[in-house]
Each structure stands twice: as C-alpha cells, then as structure tokens.
C-alpha cells in the first residue's frame, strides 16, 4: 500500500507534499516516513495519507480560475487614492505575484 507523505519543516508552517512510502499500515507508514523523509531536511511533523484516498482533478478536466476575464476579483483592477493601509498593499502584492504565476503557466 502506498502512502503519500507531507512534511512540515517548522512549527506553524504548512505541510507540503514531499514523497511517499510503501507500508502495510498507518503505524508503519509513519515510522518509515520519519526515516525516509524526515532524516535530513528540517522536520517538525509529517502526515501520511493513503494514496488511494486522494482524489485528483486536473487542468485537462477543469479550467482553474476560468477562461473568461475575471480581473474584477483582483485588487489590481481598482485604482484608489492616497496611501493604502499596509495590509491592503501586502494583499495586493500577493495577488500580483499569484496573477503572474498564473500567467506563466
């Protein structure tokens, strides 16, 4: 049975996919993952998930984010006056980055 492994490097960070292990049950999957994926890179926590339990939907099945103009849902579509609050500027910057990444695909 295949288990997908997600590693969190430090407290508070996100668990991100880092690989998998073959194991007969959850307990052994955790033990194997600890060695296979936690022995070198900084690790605070690992999740193991049965491969078969993962559902997938890909860009061949759905146009993620749509195909028509959705610029209305981005902060960059709006021009405001004066200094924006710091957190608004941060949010807009994150959106600009995300928009750019979408465009790069």
């Amino acid at each position: 049975m295949i288990w997908e492994v997600f590693r969190q490097a430090k407290t508070g960070e996100y668990h991100t996919h880092c690989g998998n292990v073959h194991a007969p049950d959850r307990e052994m999957a955790k033990q194997f993952a600890a060695i296979q994926h936690g022995r070198r890179k900084p690790t605070n926590s690992l999740w193991v998930v049965p491969r078969e339990e993962i559902g997938e939907i890909g860009s061949d099945e759905v146009a993620f984010g749509g195909t028509t103009d959705k610029s209305y849902r981005w902060a960059t579509a709006y021009n405001t006056t004066g200094t924006d609050a710091r957190e608004v500027v941060e949010s807009e910057d994150e959106q600009v980055t995300a928009e750019k990444q979408r465009g790069d695909d």
């Binding site: 902060a75 608004v88 949010s91």
Partner: peptide, 27 residues
C-alpha cells in the same frame, strides 16, 4: 493556533480585493 493563522494567510490574500473594491465604490 496554527490552523487559524493558516486561514488568515488565505483570507488576507483575498481581502485586499474587497477593501479596494469597497473604496472604488466610495470613490
């Protein structure tokens, strides 16, 4: 509470659009 902080990451990411849209309506 880490799950709350993670939720806030995503909320703050989106919320800039809301505030700017609201400001645009005010303008």
């Amino acid at each position: 509470w880490e799950p709350y902080a993670h939720a806030m990451d995503k909320v703050c990411f989106e919320e800039g659009f809301h505030v700017k849209h609201g400001e645009d309506i005010l303008k």
